[in-house]
């Protein structure tokens, strides 16, 4: 059920991110979501794309350090408090969220949240039991 996130190690140097997005664009890969975690030395670029296998291949060949990570995607309503509700359910069940990022759907009235947790299956079960709708690969393709 989990969706695939591409994780790229990037040096904190001018022009690194643009060269990655440029490489993807030239190979006709479309970005769905993107987040960067940065420290003083390095950054970790996290990407959801339309074709992760192709993106992984292209970026590795270009010399980037890539890791494919399973993450949980959940659909939430576009209204105040909706994200809190999802996070509360996880918290009540002792699921620690390492990081998350969110993006809006283009047409429908809701948002998507990408969550990184230790145990994907458990988190997905808990969210589904609480009535949340999980995102699948098909959903990503339709965005």
């Amino acid at each position: 059920m989990a969706i695939k996130q591409l994780t790229v190690f990037v040096e904190n140097k001018q022009g690194t991110v643009v060269s990655i997005t440029d490489t993807l664009a030239k190979n006709n890969i479309n970005l769905r979501a993107l987040s960067i975690a940065e420290t003083q030395d390095f950054g970790i670029l996290r990407l959801i794309v339309n074709d992760e296998a192709a993106a992984e291949k292209i970026l590795s060949e270009t010399g980037y350090l890539i890791k494919m990570t399973d993450v949980v995607g959940v659909k939430i309503g576009d209204a105040p408090g909706k994200l809190t509700a999802a996070l509360k359910v996880l918290d009540e069940n002792d699921i620690n969220v390492d990081y998350l990022y969110a993006f809006m759907a283009r047409t429908e009235k809701h948002a998507y949240v990408v969550l990184r947790v230790e145990d994907n299956c458990k988190a997905e079960g808990i969210l589904e039991d609480a009535g949340f709708h999980l995102i699948t690969k098909e959903d990503i393709d339709k965005i």
Partner: peptide
């Protein structure tokens, strides 16, 4: 240099490695 085996998506892990 970071290695492929050790690279993870979590900042906290990499800081711990350093």
């Amino acid at each position: 240099e970071m290695t492929a085996d050790k690279f993870t998506d979590k900042v906290s892990d990499i800081l711990a490695m350093e």
